[in-house]
Write a protein that binds this DNA or RNA. Structure first.
Length: 511
RNA sequence: GCCGGGGUAGCUCAGUUGGUUAGAGCGUCUGACUGUGGAUCAGAAGGCCGAGGGUUCGAGUCCCUCCUCCGGUACCA
């Protein structure tokens, strides 16, 4: 009955993952490629802690002592609220604020690492996931924003995603604010003067929340379509599950403004700017926003980044919190079929924008900044789908078997020789017989096995088995096992002195 | 967070109106084959039937609560 004692149940937190060696090395290769692009543009690495004081992350609810839901937090031994970072931008702002006097501006850094959010996990959505950011802090120049778009495009292409299979979409929050001004000025009871509305304006809290609400609706265009947005801006909308989502309650003429705005599409960046002008030119921020887009367009064009890579898109919103100017996202445009044959899109894998106010929270003065963040995990699954990242099965392609355990000393010499020649090699340290050792080699993705029994030793040779060839050939063996064993077509002998070349020969077949 | 649908062996699933000891395929392991991966054959292991409570003489099956996975929706830095 001692078996019945309560054992600890092995369980894992929801939304968290265990990653196999294969996935980890694929991710590392991907990160290395991304890093090479960031460094090509002169960004240098930075590392910050996983934990931050909650207020540095900007996550206190108004009037509340409790951290915002949505982040992992706890009180430390001094009763201070501490939380796991939920992105890499807030820690960067904190770092810049702490080191502003020593940092050469513009400060350009990249950072990769896990971030944590308490969200509902779904397919491709986790509570712990990797982001890989680059940012330029301390310049308000649109050159930095244009460059961010270029880097995003170049990164995706470096990862093997073809031009046309992705697109970088750019918008400007100032343009959106220009539109919002018009919408809010017309809203019921809002006394409105020039430039007064929208986030950052002097309008009341009610207007600010309404503005946010409108942005939220716009953000859902992808999902619900134009008619859906219209409903959401107005009375509300019933989705297919029957749930009713209350709307923003705008009157029809205000909704019209938003819909007109969303209807503006143009292939060419310059054309879109021209089409937007009549809608927002009455607004100061709106004009500013368009001017910024003009500068970005100029920089992109001069850099050779045309509309086949970077487009302007007035429907891009990118979250709600802290963006103050240009916003951009990189999306994969091709469709895939999932396991059930349903078409699916990877969608946005890269996102960013300008956040001129983030450092201000610490210093009181404005340090403009812009940057972007790549969703490492989602992009990795896209690359795996495209087979742009090889999941190499084994870190070491060669297994030195131990046919005769009494020869272990000799086997150790063989592996050492292989390693000295720069070939990753594993010595079988298990206890099972040779058949199991081959199985082990096969299952751990080895390419070649070295066999040296007393026969080979006497002849001064080693046998080298090509596992993949053997795998192929074994399909045709049928039931004549004896013959198969005698011939061993996938195996060859080499003088011991020539083992390295022989192994290289086998590995070369699959390089 | 809210609405809906699931959870039975490692995986995919079956399990009668509530009724003896819960099954299959695949996979795993062992052996035939102690110097060779596959195939074949023989055998074995593997289940708190998601968890807890309730109804009942009796629950994998019915009821409640929780956990968890899937779909939708909300939120998303």
């Amino acid at each position: 009955m001692s078996d019945k004692i309560r054992r600890t149940e092995a369980r894992r937190l929801r939304g968290f993952r265990d990653l196999s060696g294969e996935v980890v090395s694929a991710r590392e290769r991907m990160i290395a490629r991304i890093r090479s692009v960031y460094e090509r543009y002169g960004f240098a690495p930075l590392e910050t802690p996983a934990l931050e004081y909650v207020e540095c992350l900007g996550k206190f609810l108004p009037e509340s002592d409790q951290p915002d839901a949505g982040i992992f937090s706890f009180r430390d031994e001094d009763e201070a609220w501490v939380a796991l970072r939920y992105d890499l931008t807030a820690p960067l702002s904190r770092y810049v604020a702490m080191n502003i006097n020593e940092l050469p501006l513009p400060f350009r850094r990249y950072q990769v690492g896990p971030v944590w959010r308490v969200e509902k996990p779904g397919p491709g959505r986790f509570r712990e996931f990797y982001q890989f950011d680059f940012d330029s802090v301390g310049t308000g120049s649109m050159l930095a924003d244009a460059e961010a778009c270029m880097i995003m495009a170049e990164t995706l292409e470096t990862l093997g995603i073809r031009r046309g299979d992705y697109v970088i979409r750019v918008n400007n929050r100032k343009v959106l604010n220009g539109v919002l001004e018009r919408v809010l000025c017309g809203s019921a009871g809002a006394a409105c003067s020039e430039g007064a509305a929208g986030p950052g304006g002097t309008a009341g809290a009610a207007d600010a929340s309404l503005a946010l609400n409108v942005l939220r609706c716009i953000d859902k265009l992808d999902k619900v379509g134009l008619p859906g947005v219209e409903q959401l801006l107005g009375k509300g909308r019933k989705d297919e599950s029957g749930a009713f989502i209350p709307g923003a309650g705008l009157p029809p003429e205000q909704i019209r403004i938003v819909l007109d705005y969303l209807g503006i599409r143009a292939t060419f960046r310059a054309a879109l700017i021209g089409d937007l002008a009549p809608l927002v030119e009455a607004s100061e921020v709106g004009r500013q926003g368009l001017d910024e887009l003009r500068q970005i367009d100029a920089a992109l064009s001069a850099g050779g980044f045309d509309e086949d890579r970077v487009v302007f898109d007035s429907t891009v919103v990118r979250g709600l919190e802290y963006y103050t100017g240009p916003v951009f996202e990189g999306a994969l445009t091709f469709e895939i079929k999932d396991e059930d044959g349903q078409p699916r899109q990877f969608g946005s894998v890269f996102g960013g924008g300008r956040y001129d106010d983030l450092v201000k929270r610490f210093l009181g003065r404005e340090i403009p900044a812009t940057g972007a963040s790549i969703g490492v995990d989602r992009l990795l699954s896209a690359l795996q789908y495209l087979r742009k990242i090889e999941s190499s099965a084994s870190v070491a392609p060669v297994l030195v078997t131990r046919l005769d355990k009494s020869l272990t000393g000799e086997y150790q010499k063989l592996v050492a020789e292989l390693r000295a020649a720069g070939i990753n090699a594993e010595l079988y340290v298990g206890t099972q017989n040779i058949g199991k050792q081959f199985q082990y080699a096969s299952r751990t993705g080895k390419i070649a096995c070295i066999v040296m029994g007393s026969d080979e030793l006497a002849r001064g040779e080693v046998s080298i088995k090509d596992l993949r060839l053997g795998d192929e050939l074994s399909k045709e063996v049928g039931e004549d096992r004896k013959k198969w064993l005698e011939q061993q077509p996938a195996q060859a002998s080499a003088p011991r002195g020539q083992m390295i070349e022989a192994v290289r020969g086998v590995l070369g077949r699959y390089a």
